[in-house]
Amino acid sequence: MIENVVIIGAGNLATQLALALTGKGIQVKQVFSRTLEAACELAGKVNAQFTNNLSALMPGSDLYIVSVKDSAIQEVMMNLPADKNRLVVHTAGSIPMEALSRFTNNYGVFYPLQSFSKYRNVDFSGIPICIEAHHAATLLQLQQLAERLSSSVHLVNSQERKTLHLAAVFVNNFVNHFYTIGYEILQDKKLNFDLLKPLIQETADKIESMSPLNAQTGPARRNDLGVISDQLNMLQDHPEFQKIYSFVSQSIYHIHQKQNNDLL
């Protein structure tokens, strides 16, 4: 059973994962970050040692969690002290598990499917944790660890995880960008973004009982060309917003036209 870990990274996910593990009695022995200040900050929260030198990582930990940006995973692994028996996982959505295979015989993936911010604590109990491992025994260890954090643990292979990550970009990252656009539109007219928050909440709540397709409303869904034209004119000072509005409206219309044709 995994009882202690070394966290490689001190960003959003690394921070929240370290806090969650500590909260369940799993010791974070050490934190690594390229920035000593970031390593020190996170280590202080979980009573761990810290370093900005990969060659100074503690040996003998039950698990090494690589939680850095995707493009840095290979560099981190290449600079770890050689140990083919070390159990290493990464937490990335789009990087295949086999990216770790050159560096250790014991590897896997521990991917919490959620959006994380460093200074906003989250409850892991309902967060889906997607796991994958090279060996059955390792998979069991990761499953037991994940089940200490969450009631939603899933065995997901690398291609499935990559697809989940793609879908997550649409439903989280792109949607949040639309929040930003809405915020800027209101700021231009000195209107309060808080007025939209009940709408945002209801939109999220509806898909608990309806499919996103059936929950869709708005002028594009109705093909209300008069409203669409008027709103495009309102965006003439924001040509990039116009392009987004037009493209998304067309996408909504075509998806619902296809649904209607399929029902004929």
Score class of each variant (00 low, 15 high):
residue 54 L to H: 07
residue 55 S to C: 10
residue 56 A to S: 15
residue 56 A to C: 06
residue 56 A to E: 14
residue 58 M to Y: 09
residue 59 P to C: 07
residue 59 P to W: 09
residue 60 G to H: 10
residue 60 G to I: 08
residue 62 D to F: 07
residue 62 D to C: 10
residue 62 D to I: 13
residue 62 D to P: 02
residue 63 L to Y: 05
residue 64 Y to P: 01
residue 64 Y to D: 04
residue 64 Y to L: 12
residue 65 I to M: 09
residue 65 I to P: 01
residue 65 I to K: 11
residue 66 V to E: 01
residue 66 V to I: 14
residue 67 S to H: 06
residue 68 V to M: 02
residue 68 V to K: 02
residue 69 K to A: 13
residue 69 K to N: 12
residue 70 D to F: 08
residue 70 D to P: 01
residue 72 A to T: 10
residue 72 A to N: 08
residue 73 I to D: 00
residue 74 Q to T: 14
residue 75 E to I: 10
residue 76 V to M: 03
residue 77 M to C: 15
residue 78 M to R: 13
residue 78 M to I: 11
residue 78 M to N: 12
residue 80 L to H: 02
residue 80 L to Y: 01
residue 82 A to W: 09
residue 82 A to L: 13
residue 83 D to G: 09
residue 84 K to A: 15
residue 85 N to R: 15
residue 86 R to K: 15
residue 88 V to W: 04
residue 89 V to L: 08
residue 89 V to F: 02
residue 90 H to R: 12
residue 90 H to Q: 05
residue 92 A to E: 03
residue 93 G to T: 07
residue 93 G to S: 08
residue 93 G to K: 11
residue 96 P to L: 09
residue 98 E to W: 07
residue 98 E to A: 14
residue 98 E to T: 15
residue 98 E to G: 08
residue 99 A to E: 12
residue 99 A to P: 02
residue 100 L to Q: 07
residue 100 L to R: 12
residue 101 S to I: 11
residue 101 S to V: 11
residue 102 R to A: 15
residue 103 F to M: 07
residue 103 F to W: 14
residue 104 T to H: 05
residue 105 N to F: 05
residue 106 N to Y: 13
residue 106 N to Q: 14
residue 110 F to L: 13
residue 111 Y to I: 09
residue 112 P to N: 10
residue 112 P to K: 08
residue 116 F to A: 01
residue 117 S to I: 00
residue 119 Y to L: 05
residue 119 Y to R: 05
residue 119 Y to M: 03
residue 121 N to A: 12
residue 122 V to T: 06
residue 123 D to E: 04
residue 123 D to Q: 04
residue 124 F to I: 04
residue 125 S to V: 00
residue 126 G to T: 05
residue 126 G to M: 09
residue 126 G to A: 06
residue 127 I to S: 02
residue 127 I to E: 00
residue 127 I to K: 08
residue 128 P to N: 13
residue 129 I to V: 14
residue 129 I to D: 01
residue 129 I to K: 06
residue 130 C to T: 09
residue 130 C to V: 08
residue 131 I to P: 03
residue 131 I to L: 07
residue 131 I to W: 08
residue 132 E to V: 07
residue 132 E to S: 06
residue 132 E to A: 05
residue 133 A to Y: 09
residue 133 A to S: 14
residue 135 H to V: 10
residue 136 A to Y: 07
residue 136 A to M: 10
residue 136 A to G: 07
residue 136 A to W: 05
residue 138 T to R: 11
residue 138 T to D: 15
residue 139 L to C: 12
